[in-house]
Simulated assay, not measured.
Amino acid sequence: MGKKEASAHGDEKIIGLLNRIMESELAGVVRYTHYSLMVFGYNRLPIISWLRGQADESLAHAHDAGELITHLGGHPSLAIGPLLETHKHDIGDILRESLAHEGLALQLYKDLLKEVEGVSVMLEEYARKMVHLEEMHQGEVNKMLRKPGEVAVFSDR
């Protein structure tokens, strides 16, 4: 395999990862929008505001991934990542589902980082930035799942 062919093969794998990221982020838009519609109770307004902000952020992340796909000469996917309707709409359930979804997104960004390290500074910096953002977001959701006064990290186990 020549150098140009190896590069094209590498780009295909990177484009594939970016498409999976884009699909996952688009699923996040749908998921967070759905969640925002299903919150009831005294604290509804600040919670739906936060959830809608997460939907907006997921859409921005999908746009970023799509721009990189076309930058590399690829075709952005029209698919959307998996959507699971658990019919559990307690805020704790929503946050636990969100934490699980964010964990999957984080892994995709880490996979991308492994693939592009030492290959493309642009893509490496993008992947690092997104890993940072996803880890910060996971931390925020984790804090939201803790009972008031608890400092220990939340764990479902």
Results as ranks from 00 to 15, higher is better:
Leu37Lys: 09
Met38Cys: 09
Met38Asp: 12
Phe40Val: 12
Tyr42Ile: 07
Tyr42Glu: 15
Tyr42His: 05
Tyr42Arg: 05
Ile47Met: 03
Ile47His: 12
Ile48Lys: 03
Ser49Ala: 13
Ser49Ile: 05
Trp50Phe: 08
Trp50Gln: 13
Leu51Phe: 02
Arg52Gln: 15
Arg52Tyr: 10
Arg52Cys: 06
Gly53Leu: 02
Gly53Lys: 02
Gln54Phe: 02
Gln54Gly: 09
Gln54Tyr: 01
Ala55Ser: 06
Ala55His: 06
Ala55Asn: 03
Asp56Trp: 02
Asp56Ser: 09
Glu57Gln: 11
Glu57Arg: 09
Ser58Thr: 11
Ser58Phe: 00
Leu59His: 09
Ala60His: 11
Ala60Ile: 01
Ala60Gln: 14
His61Asp: 15
Ala62Lys: 01
His63Trp: 09
His63Ser: 13
Asp64Trp: 07
Ala65Val: 04
Ala65Glu: 10
Ala65Met: 05
Gly66Trp: 02
Gly66Gln: 04
Gly66Thr: 02
Glu67Gln: 15
Leu68Ser: 03
Ile69Ser: 15
Thr70His: 09
His71Asn: 13
His71Asp: 15
Leu72Val: 13
Leu72Ser: 11
Leu72Asp: 14
Gly74Arg: 01
Gly74Gln: 02
Ser77Cys: 05
Ser77Arg: 02
Ser77Asn: 05
Ala79Ile: 02
Ile80Thr: 10
Ile80Met: 11
Gly81Cys: 00
Leu83Val: 02
Leu83Ile: 04
Leu83Lys: 04
Leu84Gln: 13
Glu85Ile: 08
Thr86Gly: 12
His87Leu: 06
Lys88Glu: 15
His89Tyr: 12
His89Asn: 15
Ile91Glu: 13
Asp93Lys: 10
Arg96His: 09
Arg96Lys: 08
Glu97Tyr: 07
Glu97Phe: 05
Glu97Gly: 12
Leu99Val: 00
Glu102His: 06
Glu102Gly: 09
Gly103Trp: 03
Leu104Ala: 11
Leu106Ala: 09
Leu106Gln: 14
Leu106Met: 05
Leu106Pro: 03
Tyr109Val: 04
Tyr109Phe: 00
Tyr109Leu: 01
Tyr109His: 11
Lys110His: 14
Leu112Trp: 03
Leu113Gly: 03
Leu113Asp: 03
Lys114Leu: 11
Lys114Thr: 12
Val116Gly: 09
Val116Asp: 01
Val116Ile: 10
Gly118Ile: 02
Gly118Glu: 06
Val119Arg: 14
Ser120Pro: 01
Ser120Phe: 00
Val121Met: 08
Val121Trp: 04
Val121Thr: 15
Met122Glu: 14
Glu124Tyr: 11
Glu124Gly: 06
Glu125Ile: 07
Ala127Arg: 03
Arg128Asn: 10
Arg128Tyr: 12
Arg128Ile: 06
Lys129Gly: 15
Lys129His: 09
Val131Trp: 05
Glu134Thr: 01
Glu134Ile: 00
Glu135Asn: 11
Glu135Asp: 14
Met136Pro: 00
Met136Thr: 13
Met136Ile: 05
His137Gln: 03
Gly139Asn: 14
Gly139Cys: 10
Gly139Gln: 08
Gly139Asp: 10
Glu140Asn: 04
Asn142Gly: 12
Asn142Lys: 13
Asn142Gln: 15
Met144His: 12
Met144Trp: 11
Leu145Gly: 14
Arg146Ser: 08
Lys147Leu: 06
Gly149Thr: 03
Gly149Tyr: 02
